[in-house]
Computed example of a mutant assay.
Amino acid sequence: MLDALTLDQIRTFVTIADSGSFRSAAGRLGRVQSGVSVAIANLEAQLGVALFDRTGHRPLMTREGEALLANARDILLRVDAMRARARGLGEGVELELPLAVDTLYPIHHVGQALAELRTAFPLVSVRLVVEPLGGPLTALRERRCTLAIMVGEEFRDPRITFEALSSISQVAVVAADHRLAGFQERQSIGIPDLADHVQVVLSDPSQVSKGRDFGVISPQTCRVGSQDAKHALILAGVGWGRLPLWLVQRDLEGGRLRRLGTGALGRNAEVVSETYLAHRLDEPLGPAARKIAEILVRTSSNDSNP
């Protein structure tokens, strides 16, 4: 009967799939290999299907096993989430609240939320890191932060839950004295024109986007590690690039930067991305984390620009 299924059997099944063999799974679980084999045999008997083909030198997952693996992972995620929530209900206030924020998100919004948090939890220390691209997701995966603010749809993980906060506008800009600024007064800028000039690009500090580039058009790039460095280099005339509108609004109004006159980078050289508040499903949120999450959700709007 299916009612006789155990979490131990399901976790053993998933561990074998992740580790690649019964022997490796036994090592991860701290059990003898025969115990792992018995757990899988019992699971197969309960389900009425073979999860592994044992006719070869080493067991291989069957088509039935592959089909049921997603269900097994989902069950474990839900159980871990339930345990995490239960632990959180019984825990006291955190001593420290680690946060990771995408460089595209307005840091002054985070500051306002932290200022409000201190009125409720004045003794909680905050550790804040600001990283681009896959940095916040990696911080969550490695448990270096409790909450993360992430931008865009590129970085997802089934162990992470996401809640929409607001939208962020990025504009393609160039210094007022750059050649592209004068070019756009005469005619629209095309992709070949952009490729003839240096593009200032953010580097991913994590391995999440290894082998991939996002929005890189020019073969001539200047790669930097922070949004502030990218902003400074574009202002200095090194090249062109996308920057969040909240960061460059005053530069545009003051004539120090200009939007690129091109429709190849979005209407009016602008693209809009969603921002999300994220945390691990299997880690409980303490009182301070729940409070700042509530503040961020409440104070966010569809327009994150000042």
Rank of each mutant, 00 (worst) to 15 (best):
R118H: 08
Q112M: 11
L114N: 00
P122D: 13
A115V: 10
T103I: 14
H109Y: 04
V93S: 13
P106D: 01
S125F: 07
G111F: 07
L123Q: 15
L97V: 08
H109R: 14
L114T: 01
P106I: 09
Y105R: 00
L97I: 06
A113R: 00
V126W: 01
V126K: 08
P122R: 08
V124N: 08
A115G: 04
L95F: 07
R118C: 03
E94N: 10
P122Y: 13
E96W: 00
F121R: 02
V124H: 02
L99T: 05
F121L: 06
S125A: 15
Q112A: 02
V101P: 01
F121D: 06
V124L: 15
F121E: 03
A113C: 05
L114A: 02
L117S: 08
Y105N: 00
H109S: 06
E116P: 00
L117A: 04
V126D: 05
L114K: 03
P122G: 14
V110N: 04
S125G: 05
A113M: 07
S125E: 15
G111D: 15
T103P: 11
L95M: 09
H108F: 03
T103Y: 05
V126H: 02
E96M: 08
V101M: 06
E116R: 14
P106Q: 01
L117H: 06
A115L: 14
L95V: 08
V126A: 03
I107S: 06
L97Q: 03
P106A: 01
V93P: 13
L123W: 12
F121Q: 09
L117K: 04
H109V: 04
L123S: 15
A115C: 06
D102H: 03
F121V: 08
P122T: 14
L117F: 04
D102E: 12
A115T: 12
E96H: 06
L104C: 09
L114S: 05
L104D: 04
H108P: 00
V101E: 08
E94R: 10
L99Q: 10
I107M: 05
E116Q: 13
P106T: 08
L123Y: 13
V110W: 01
L104R: 09
L104N: 03
S125K: 14
L117G: 03
A100I: 06
V93Q: 11
L95W: 06
A113E: 02
L114H: 06
E116H: 02
P122L: 09
Q112N: 11
S125H: 13
L99P: 02
T119I: 13
V126E: 10
Y105E: 01
A100D: 07
L117C: 10
H108D: 09
L117T: 10
V101R: 05
H108K: 06
F121T: 10
T103D: 14
L117D: 07
Q112D: 07
F121A: 04
V124E: 03
A113K: 01
T103H: 12
D102M: 03
I107L: 14
E116T: 06
A120T: 15
L114W: 01
L117I: 12
Q112P: 02
